[in-house]
Amino acid sequence: MFSGFMVNAWEIGTIVAVVGGVVGFFVVLRGAAFPAHAIPNGAFAGAAGANLLGVNPLIGLGVFSLGAALGIGRLTRRGRADAVTALALVMMLALGAAFLSQSTEYEPEIFSLLFGEILGVSRGQIVPVAVLGAVCVLFVGVLYRRLLLTSLAPEIAAAQGLRPELVDTAFLVVIACATTMTVPVVGALLIFTLMIGPPAAARCFTDRAEIAFALSVAFALVTVWVALACSYVSDWPVGFYVSVFSAAWFAAGRGYLAWRRHTSAPSRPWGSSPDV
């Protein structure tokens, strides 16, 4: 389990989990689940296009995910965010379908882009993924407080000169960056579920942002490690296990909240100071 191709899988899985936990924390706080789904899924069109032109699929993915992030950020200012995201997604998927219709071999390509092939990762793929991952984490770290305040009270942030719409677009670019690096190695499904389940659970267990942030990463790591082990033993796809364990974290978080609401004063569901 810890030799040969599995070593690469453990390393990549660990990097992806850290990025998913870090970026996902703000995906959940900002209610950006839809863009987090749309950007990785739509970006596959870029890979298909690159395939057609004979260039590196990573470039196609990067161009499309970045384009999607900027496009959604731009169009959202003049329309309903969720409708705009949906339209951007289907437009990219339709382009992907057009690209695929012009090429001859596509079937395994689609499958691997959507569901990933983490067990087939090569040594050479680890370095670029690690670099892009570090960029994502660094970006979130640098913007941490801005992201926090604009998630909570965008108008107050604007009054302090923080430009919430700029922070929004910057965050979409972070999602795009995370997408470019992870989709080719683990697939759109795995990164999306990692960005939702563990962070959504993390914020149920604590009232402190820093602790929730750390928990989010920890939960994501456990998810990926256990999923890899299960997949190795059972031969079923890793993505399946990651999605199920992510949902299990979410259920655990909600269960904990319900239990705490049941045991503490009913008037203040998330109250944290029983000494009042």
């Binding site: 706080l29 909570l152 914020r203 009232d207 402190r208 942002a209 929730a212 569901p269």
Partner: peptide
């Protein structure tokens, strides 16, 4: 009017 999201873990 500010509606602060109660799901955000910020004290």
């Amino acid at each position: 009017k500010v509606s602060l999201d109660p799901d955000v873990p910020v004290r």
